[in-house]
């Protein structure tokens, strides 16, 4: 088992840091190129899910505990709505970012950055939470092993 997965382990160790870095790039560069909170959140979550599939869900839980993903999930929505409320407190309509900084354009930029960050946090939190919940089911703690078993079952029938 260990020997079979050594290639996967090495390759994923090489791949996961670039995946996470790329997610951050997509997150903060979304105003200029294609990208934004939704994509970044999904890519970030995909990085963690890859880690959990290769190294086991238990060690992934040590990296980010399930409680942390739930907190991330709700903090994202809070950040988004909070940005809206902040702009309301500063004298404009809900989610009108123009008043957040000295000039309207800078305010818009700041607002978009915050909102996209909120979206990214929620999407990452949601995807990882969902994955953890599926993986924590009885009989589902070893997803990679089951995946390897499936071809055998198919061959039997």
């Amino acid at each position: 088992m260990m020997h079979q997965k050594s290639v996967l382990r090495v390759v994923s160790k090489l791949l996961i840091p670039p995946i996470l870095l790329f997610a951050l790039y997509v997150q903060f560069h979304g105003d200029f190129g294609p990208g934004g909170g939704f994509q970044a959140g999904v890519i970030f979550a995909a990085g963690f899910i890859l880690y959990a599939l290769i190294f086991g869900v238990a060690s992934a839980r040590r990296v980010i505990p399930a409680a942390a993903t739930r907190a991330l999930l709700s903090l994202g929505v809070l950040l988004y709505a909070g940005t809206g409320v902040a702009s309301m407190l500063m004298g404009a309509e809900f989610l009108n970012y123009s008043v957040l900084a000295a000039t309207p354009l800078a305010g818009q930029h700041l607002g978009i950055l915050l909102v996209e960050l909120g979206v990214g946090m929620t999407v990452t939190g949601a995807m990882v939470t969902i994955f953890y919940t599926f993986a924590a089911q009885p009989g589902g703690d070893e997803l990679p092993r089951n995946k390897q078993n499936n071809p055998d079952e198919g061959a039997k029938t």
Binding site: V42, V123, F134
Partner: peptide
């Protein structure tokens, strides 16, 4: 569509949870 895709995968996972 961008937002619909992400919402779609979230609701799909909800359906999969119901199946489990």
């Amino acid at each position: 569509i961008l937002t619909a895709i992400v919402v779609g995968v979230a609701t799909t996972s909800l359906a999969l949870a119901l199946i489990v």
